[in-house]
Amino acid sequence: MSWLTWRQFRSQVWVAVTVVAVLAVVFAITGVQLHHLADASGYPGCISAGLCHNFISAVKTNGLYPFLYNTGLMMLYVLPALIGIFWGAPLLARDLEAGSYRMLWTQSITRSRWLTVKLLLVGAASMITAGLLSLIVTWWSAPIDAAGGLQMGAFRLDTLQFGSRGIAPVGYAALAFTLGAAIGLLTRRALAAMAITFALFLAIQIITPIWIRPHFQAPVTATTAIAGPNFNIEITGDQQMRALAQQSPVGAWILSDEDVDSTGKVIYLRATDACLQRSPEACQDYVLGLHVSEKITYQPADRFWPFQTYETGIFLLVSLGLIGFSSWRVRRIN
C-alpha cells in the first residue's frame, strides 16, 4: 500500500521538494545578508532597549527584504491551506468518486489499511513540508521579528507572526490535511471536499488567534496612572485622543491598550480644542484633571514557546481525532 500511495502521490512530492528547495536557496542567500545587515546596525543590542530603528530603516532601504519578510509570513498561512485543499481533500474522495475504491478495497488489504497508510504517509509529508518551510522562514525573519517587525510594534508572539513561526505551521498543516481527508470521506466528492476544507480551515485560521490563543494563559495587566509630567498625548482620530504613560513591554503580544477611569472602566478621551490646537500645557492640565490610567493587557514575550507548544499540541490532538473519525467512518461506507 505504501508503494501505491507513493506512486499516486509522487508528482506532488516532487512539486513540494522543488518549491521548498527554491525557497530554501532564496531565503538562505538573502538571510545571510540580512543577518550581516543586522549585526552592522546595532542588533541585537538594540532589542532590550526597543531601539532598533536603525536596523529596520536599513532593512527598508532594500525593497527585497520587506517583500521576503511579508512573503514568508503569507506563505506559511497559505501552505497549510493548500495542503488541506490539494493533498487532504482529494486523498480519499478521488478514489470514492471515481469508483476505483471498489477495485482497491477488494485487493488483499483491508480498507482500514488503505486509509491508514495513505493518512500516515501523506500526513507526514505535509508536516515535513510545513516544518521545513517554517524553519527557513523563522530563521530568516528572526532579527526583524525581534525588532518588532517592519512597523516595530508586532513581535513573533503577535497575532500574525505567531502562526508562521516555530512549530505552529506543523500543527496547522496536520490539521488542514486530516480535516481535508475526513471531509473527502464524508462528501465522497473531491471538488466539494476541497471547497469545504478551504472554508473551514480559513475559519480555523481566523478563530484561533482571536478567540483561542489569548486564553492559553491569563494575560498580564499593567496599569499606570496618568499623573505628573511624563506622559504623551496622541490624537487618534476625529475628536479622540489617547493618554499614554507606558513603554509597551518588549516582545509582548499586546491584547489591549486602553485608558481607564478610577473605577477601571474604559474611557475614550475627547480631544478638546486645546489639544487639537496644539497648546500642550492646557491640554496636559485637562488630561491630568480627568484622573485616568493607561491599562495594557498583554502576553509577555517569554510565553512564545509555551504557546507554540499548546497550539501545536491542540492541533495535533484534533488531527488525531480526525484520523480516528476517518477510520471509524471508512468502515461504515456502504
Binding site: G99, S100, R102, M103, Q107, S108, T110
Partner: peptide, 14 residues
C-alpha cells in the same frame, strides 16, 4: 479478501 477476486461494474481502474 485474498480468496475472492472482484471485477466491479464499469471495471474501475486508476
Amino acid at each position: 479478501l485474498a480468496r475472492v477476486g472482484f471485477v466491479a461494474q464499469d471495471t474501475p481502474t486508476l
